[in-house]
Amino acid sequence: MNKTLTSLNTSFLILLFLSLIFSMFSIPNLNIDEKQSIKVNFYELIPQDDILFDSSAPDTLIKKETKKISEINEKINTDETSIISKFKINKLDIKNEISKIKLSKEREDILRVSAIIQERISSIWIKPNSLSESLTAKVLINLAPSGEILNFSLIKPSSNTSFNESILTTMNKMTFFEEVLFLERKLFEKNFRNFNLVFKSSGEIE
């Protein structure tokens, strides 16, 4: 019994580990440049106009009339069914499309605000000279919905003190990211309440 539990536990942990790996690969890591654009693809509806009836019945008048009536009825029914079926598909598609558009809109908003933040930081960050090594430092920002920077901390400093100092000096110059004011509250809470700025130096002579 114990063995079974242990193996179950191990499997669970492996599952969690895999989920962690998966989640790591799905980190939104935005590196925005001017060329990036948002593409929205609308679902192409397939026309369903084919109406089915029995063509093998004899061609008498009554039959013809009956057939006509039945044809009309059938056509109406078929049309209705077709419309309903079409409507059903459309409803589903529209729902999908709305959610897609919403997602695209959200993505667009995140990209737009991120690009503005990126630009504002870049315009005041005085990078130390002559860094021959590749450096990365990460700052965690805590924002109020008003855009005010409530707190920031260098959660992952680089190995270079001047590089770290330049980042702290830059962050001290910033007080507001008012761009987030125009975001939906839910979107703000999910993406900009806490976010990271990753400062990088390529180590190339610039």
Binding site: L20, P28, L30, I121, W125
Partner: peptide, 20 residues
Amino acid sequence: FFLVSNSIFSILEIEILKGS
């Protein structure tokens, strides 16, 4: 740890490559 890691890793990251 795994649960916390999951929530930490999903935070938005903006890269700053260019200086002033």
